[in-house]
Amino acid sequence: MKKVQEDSSRRAALKTMLRGAGLMGLGGAAWGGVADGLQASELTIRPPAALKEAEFVKACIRCGSCVEACPYDTLALATPDDRTAIGTPYFKPRTTPCYLCTDAPCVKECPSGALDIGKITENDLLNINKSKMGVAVVDQNSCIAFWGIQCDACYRACPLLGEAINLKFERNDRTGKHAIIEPVVNRELCTGCGLCEHACITEKPSIVILPVDIANGKAGSHYIKSWDKNDEKRINTTKEKSAVEANTAEDYLNDPESLFDD
């Protein structure tokens, strides 16, 4: 009799535990879903020297110190309607770009390490031009310079003029006697400050800042530049195994039969 009682009370306890676990699972799934919806859009532009997006949202304690430190009111903490990780700092270059303060007050004020001063330090000196907030991308269809109309607003706005943006002269085939002066961004040097996007004169900017991870492609390590001595060295150091052994490849080429279906 006692055993039966023990059993049923144990079963009751088990049931409560199961129900609790179920409820937590339910709550967790719903919460996770909502939280993920409120999470960072990949298109968010972060302050200078920010860690990679996934690390950044972990590290940032959402204190707003960077926002307060910025003398240009560039930065804001995301509110629920900004569709990015709530409470984290971001900026919209078209509205207010980052003016690349040489003393980087935003980075210095960050207590959490989400803005990592190491990323913009070179030989123990602060170099804000090493920032990588994003990269400027030109829409050649709407940029009027590509139409042959003279405009170099972005070029002149760029703090790294002549480095991050250059002008490329092309022949204007339409008129036959003018030049087309195209703005061309150097992705290695562009800081993503957005001064160009801010300055762009078209109705909707024809040069926009995109996060580096979105804008940049990747060729893959199996492409090697044979004309670049340094890059060519990778042939010897590569760890990747070729999918096809050298002699099977040869056999394959010498055996035309294998080209036909049986």
Binding site: W31, A35, R62, A76, L77, A78, T79, G87
Partner: peptide
Amino acid sequence: YAAFEVVSPIGMLQRGLIFGFG
């Protein structure tokens, strides 16, 4: 990422009071 911080009504309220609500 800090799971409560992204949904916390306390966080939204206090940041709203200090930095603006949205």
